[in-house]
Design a protein around this nucleic acid. Structure first.
Lengths: 366, 366
DNA sequence: AACACCGTTGAATCTGCGC
DNA sequence: TGCGCAGATTCAACGGTGT
């Protein structure tokens, strides 16, 4: 009788990068042989014209051929095909992560459900330093979405609850992860000094994914390997990886990168993890949350002026409008003014600086 | 000839709650009559009796074999039906918000795209106080997803950029919104003291949605009205609402709630407007009115170039002539240039951007 | 050595009006 | 409907240079 596990191990190209089409390559690998799949598929961004920053510099868009699809239908067909192949490859208790943006993630999520995957969480990667919206026409696109799903509803998937709790200073890990985008020395460059890949993901993101949902020795496959972030973090953490990448240029960069990586050498990850945004509380939040009503009057520190709160968190007094700081400064004829201590409101007959509301909210939020 | 706008206004049941099925009700309202739709659709797939096929035939859950595929297809049919009705109802420049969780939002998002809506942002509502994951088997589900989409790619949707920037203390608003869930006094109770609705949304969330994407006087429709958070915030902010709700118990709570709500002062619901909304002033008017003399020299922002004002409101420098914008762009080798902030003139020894003259003239004229 | 300043850059569906 | 043109629009972090 053949020892299946040995056969599989023998034919599984552990810790290598395969070239070619990911669907064909996945279909050529043995079924039920992989513990985790991490996939960063093309987003189908559908960008049209050029975009410039307010300083007139040009934004380097993702206009690579591999991100172009003719229609939603074409994108759905592609998605269904690679997800079918992924499903076949996973061990019964295996799981998958897929990352995307609003351009593609809804189609990916629906297809995952259609193909029998069982959604476990959607996770939001909140970027500390996203690219702003230069034209002021939409909200800053400050996050991407990851979907974590098991192979089936019955899967006994891996989830290292305590490890993630430890990563989060003793509190249960939430579904929103605050991490910076990949910049600085971590960002790989080509020979010309340009970025080697337009959408390189930060190692901190993969670190959290793998600590959460794999164990040492697990096999992690990435069908859109790019410059190999998945492989690099897998190697650091003592997991085995299989990468698939069509573009020779990306494979070359990934090979060099992986040769440099040492197991457990995760200093950079620890550093990026410690970055935390200061708890800034906009005045507008007090209004949105009903702590101050639009139309309510605020009084200045010296009692000389009053101003009315507007629904967008600005103040108005006669023809002067602006932030709590701007209106205070204008009334006092001063170059600047701390609105938090300058403006007061009345509660139960007492006059209180609005800063007290901010402190109250800080306690609630953090 | 009938006056369509009057007919529409007459037949539009402003500031009321309609009972019955939202698809039927929406289809009975006049097309292209609503500015914004906010929808919090049901997604509990156990409530299969809630589902209707597009032809409005009822889905019989009791005896059906509800394998996963049928269940998703029924939900998709339901989603497609109410989104089609919503699309018909929206004015050409109208928009929609839909909120959901990973159970349904991927199907909703894909259907939105399939039905011709144009996705503008996905927004993450990050809950400050989510329910923990008691069994420790997954991440704390600490967010919900909203999708903001315009009726079509061509829509000139409403986005009060400056107001949202003001709400966020002068930094442009991001796609992740940190807000607490609905608790305390805001949470409505029934006669028995239990929560009146299982998924009541916080008013702060609707406040931000409406400040961002509607103007006072707009008509906001909510096809899954529940206990009327959409209507309450619409009323406060001087917007008109239409609610649709099947459950009599929710309608009753919502009616009582809306009777209590008071509108904010009209100057409090005004928000900061962008410069684009201000009346346009041609540069030539400054010359005509003698604020700048023909022959006078202007200096570039960086001090590197000068150009001479001509009597027709164009500039000239050597062989380059044209508008303030064209000459600025040509000198900088930039694709475009805002001449108002680029060009400066001298008065009393000080160098001042010509935009200051425009602001001065605006005050005189308007 | 420490800090200030400046240029660069990142998965982006990024204008609106008038002729 | 397309084209031309006025003119509005950015946040955080990194790295290099200057004080």
């Amino acid at each position: 009788m053949a020892d299946t596990s040995k056969t599989v191990a023998a034919t599984l190209p552990i810790n290598t990068i395969l070239d070619g089409d990911c669907i064909e390559r996945m279909n050529a690998l043995p079924a039920e042989s992989v513990d985790l799949i991490f996939a960063d598929p093309p987003y189908n961004l559908q960008l049209k014209g050029d975009l410039h920053r307010p300083d007139n510099s040009h934004v380097d868009a993702v206009n690579d051929h591999w991100d172009q699809f003719d229609s939603f239908r074409a994108y759905d067909d592609f998605t269904k095909a690679w997800l079918k192949a992924a499903h076949r490859l996973l061990k019964p208790n295996g799981a998958i992560w897929v990352i995307g943006s609003y351009h593609n993630i809804f189609r990916v999520g629906a297809t995952l459900q259609d193909e029998g995957f069982w959604l476990l969480n959607d996770v939001v990667w909140r970027k500390t330093n996203p690219m702003p919206n230069f034209r002021g026409k939409r909200l800053t696109n400050a996050h991407e979405t990851l979907i974590w799903a098991s192979k089936s509803e019955k899967s006994k998937y891996t989830f290292n609850y305590e490890a993630l709790k430890a990563l989060n200073e003793g509190v249960q890990m939430r579904s929103d992860w605050v991490l910076p985008i990949c910049t600085g020395h971590e960002r790989l460059k080509d020979e010309k000094g340009d970025k080697a890949h337009p959408t390189q993901k930060p190692e901190s993101l993969l670190h959290r994914v793998m600590v959460a949902t794999t164990n040492p020795g697990d096999v992690v496959l990435d069908p859109f390997f790019g410059t190999g972030t998945t492989g690099a973090v897998a190697k650091m953490l003592g997991r085995d990886y299989i990468g698939i990448e069509r573009e020779a240029a990306y494979r070359k960069v990934a090979e060099a990168r992986l040769a440099r990586v040492r197991k457990f050498d995760s200093d950079a990850i620890q550093v990026s993890k410690s970055k935390r945004a200061e708890p800034r509380i906009p005045f507008g939040q007090l209004v949105e949350r009903g702590m101050l009503r639009p139309g309510e009057s605020l009084t200045s520190l010296n009692g000389r002026y009053t101003a009315k709160v507007r629904s967008d968190g600005t103040l108005v007094r006669k023809d002067v409008t602006g932030s709590i700081h701007q209106v205070g400064a204008a009334l006092e004829g001063a170059p600047s003014c701390n609105g938090w201590t300058y403006w007061h409101f009345k509660r139960d007959g007492k006059t209180v600086p609005i800063d007290q509301l901010r402190q109250q909210l800080r306690k609630e939020l953090f």
